[in-house]
C-alpha cells in the first residue's frame, strides 16, 4: 500500500467571475521514501495539488471531491484538529520564497521550537536541542548563534536552509516542497537541491517536489508527473519520461531546456501560452498549441492511458 494516495482529486475556486476548476481528476501515489516531481507551467495546478494535500488552499479554494489517503486516513475528510496534527509533524512543507516564509518579528529559535511544541509535549530546552541538531543537519554555520537571530539577519539561502530544518523537525514521512529554489540565486539553487536530496535519502523521507523547471527534478526525483491546465497529462520514471516523452507537451518542455539545444541553435519554444483556467478549450486542452493535433483532439478529452510504469493522456502519443 502506498504511503500517500491521491485519488480523483477535484479542486475548485468559486470566484465572482465563475468557478475555476484548478484540479481535474488528479490521481497519484507516493511510496514510503519515494521522491516524485510535479512539473508544469505556472497556473497548471501543481501548487493547488500541493496545498490541497494539507488542506491549506488559499481562499476561496476548496476540495470538491476525491480522496487523499495517507496511512489509511482520508486527509480530505479530517477535522481541523486532526489535520493540524499532521501538518508540520508527519507531512511538512517548504515554501517558495524564504524571504517571506519566516515571520519577521520572531527569532529563528522561537519559530522552530514552537513547531515541535505544537505536536509533542517537551521542554523548551529539549526543543532547542532538536532545533540545533536540525540546523546542523542543513549545514548552517554557527547554528547556536542562529537560534537567537531574526530572519532579516540571514541571507536568502540561509533562510531556506532554516525552512528546510523546520520542515525536518518532527522527522516527517513526507516533505512537500513548492518551488523551493525558484526564488534563490542560481549558484545557491544547486546547493539547496543537493541538500534536500541528501536529507531525504538519509532520513528516508518522501518528497513531493513541485517545479516549473524540468532541470530541477532530473537527478532528484524517481518519478515525475507533468501537469497541464489542471490535469496530469503524463507520468512515469523521471529518466524515461525525459529521455522519451510521450505527450507532445512534455516534449515541448524538454526541448525548451537550454541544455537540450545544441550550441549555436536557437532554443525551441512551445507556441502560444497555456490557457487560463477560466477558458480551457474543449477536448485536449493542449490541442491548439500542439503541432500534431487532429480533429479528434479538439472534440474528445484524452484519458490517461497506463502502459507499464508510464502513462500519457494523448490520442496520438509520440
Amino acid at each position: 500500500m502506498p504511503l500517500l494516495s491521491v485519488q480523483n482529486l477535484e479542486v475548485v475556486f468559486p470566484l465572482p467571475g465563475g468557478t475555476v476548476r484548478a484540479l481535474r481528476n488528479v490521481s497519484f501515489d507516493l511510496d514510503r521514501g519515494e521522491r516524485i516531481g510535479i512539473v508544469g507551467e505556472s497556473g497548471a495546478g501543481k501548487s493547488a495539488a500541493a496545498f490541497a494535500i494539507l488542506n491549506l488552499l488559499g481562499k476561496p479554494g476548496k476540495i470538491q471531491s476525491g480522496r487523499i489517503l495517507f496511512d489509511g486516513h482520508d486527509l480530505a475528510a479530517l477535522d481541523y484538529e486532526a489535520m493540524r496534527q499532521i501538518r508540520g509533524n508527519r507531512i511538512s512543507m517548504i515554501f517558495q520564497d524564504p524571504m517571506v516564509t519566516l515571520n519577521p518579528v520572531l527569532t529563528i529559535g522561537a519559530q522552530m521550537t514552537e513547531t515541535l511544541r505544537a505536536h509533542r509535549r517537551m521542554t523548551r530546552a529539549r526543543a532547542r536541542d532538536i532545533a540545533l541538531e536540525k540546523l546542523r543537519a542543513v549545514q548552517i554555520p554557527s547554528a547556536e548563534k542562529r537560534l537567537a537571530q531574526y530572519p532579516h539577519e540571514l541571507s536568502g539561502g540561509m533562510r531556506q536552509r532554516v525552512v528546510i530544518a523546520t520542515a525536518l523537525l518532527s522527522d516527517p514521512q513526507i516533505i512537500i516542497a513548492d518551488e523551493p529554489t525558484t526564488a534563490l540565486d542560481v549558484t545557491i539553487q544547486a546547493e539547496i537541491l543537493e541538500l534536500l536530496l541528501r536529507l531525504c535519502e538519509d532520513f528516508a523521507v518522501g518528497l513531493i517536489l513541485i517545479t516549473h523547471d524540468l532541470g530541477v527534478v532530473f537527478g532528484v526525483t524517481q518519478r515525475i508527473l507533468v501537469m497541464y491546465a489542471g490535469r496530469i497529462i503524463e507520468r512515469g520514471p523521471t529518466a524515461e519520461v525525459i529521455g522519451a516523452p510521450r505527450h507532445p507537451y512534455t516534449r515541448g518542455l524538454i526541448d525548451a531546456l537550454p541544455s537540450a539545444a545544441r550550441p549555436g541553435t536557437p532554443l525551441k519554444q512551445i507556441p502560444g501560452v497555456m490557457p487560463s483556467l477560466h477558458e480551457i478549450p474543449s477536448g485536449c486542452a493542449f490541442h491548439d498549441r500542439c503541432e500534431f493535433a487532429q480533429a479528434r483532439c479538439a472534440a474528445e478529452t484524452p484519458r490517461l492511458e497506463e502502459q507499464g510504469a508510464r502513462a500519457a493522456a494523448c490520442h496520438f502519443p509520440l
Binding site: Y80, N89, S92, L102, E114, T115, A118
Partner: peptide, 19 residues
C-alpha cells in the same frame, strides 16, 4: 506567507493569529 507557513507547521489557530 509566514502565516500560511505557520499553519503548515501545524500550529494551533490561536497561536497563528495572536503570535
Amino acid at each position: 506567507e509566514y502565516v500560511r507557513f505557520a499553519r503548515a507547521k501545524g500550529l494551533r489557530e490561536g497561536r497563528v493569529r495572536m503570535v
